[in-house]
Amino acid sequence: MGTEPSPKIVIVDENPVRAAILEDGLREAGFSRVEHIREMQNLLARIYALDPDVIVIDLENPSRDVLEQMFQVSRAVRRPIAMFVDQSDTDSIRESVDAGVSAYIVDGLKKERMRAILDLCISRFNAFSKLQDELERTKSALEDRKIIDRAKGMLMKLKGLSEEEAYVLLRSTAMREKKKIGDIAQSIITAAELLK
């Protein structure tokens, strides 16, 4: 890190888990001065009180437009900031938009240091999305298993099949109709309810 003081980074994010993941990453990388704003009320006043060098905000946050006001030179704005973009470097914007994060830089910070911070934000945001996807997948897999078990039970009872045979029937039907086994199971349950 050299002798330069660590820039002060403010994370604006209503999601505490994602903010914690990002904060940890920044601290591990040697950025020791990291603050987190969760409350969007009076956002500008909070930011001014912290007086950061860099502001990181998630793109799902409507308050992103509030930050854009800080580009304007007016009495309300003490230190003008800019979004971290390079006219020549649309890749960095695309990467950050894809990851769902945007970074604003307060004048004075070196471009290379900013790039390092942005890259870290992008990778941590992507890591968070992956985590969330996995959680969703696990949840829906559990849901599927419950549905498949119910449908299997119905098939066993109605058609006098063994558990193994009921499962094979579900699977082969799913393959033939090019559908997910969970969807076939759900349609059996729906049909059974309609025919009750």
Binding site: L59, E60, N61, P62, R64, D65, E68, I93, V97, S102
Partner: peptide, 10 residues
């Protein structure tokens, strides 16, 4: 979308 900044960037 949630912000004009997002609409503009996208």
């Amino acid at each position: 979308e949630v912000s004009w900044s997002n609409v503009r960037d996208k």
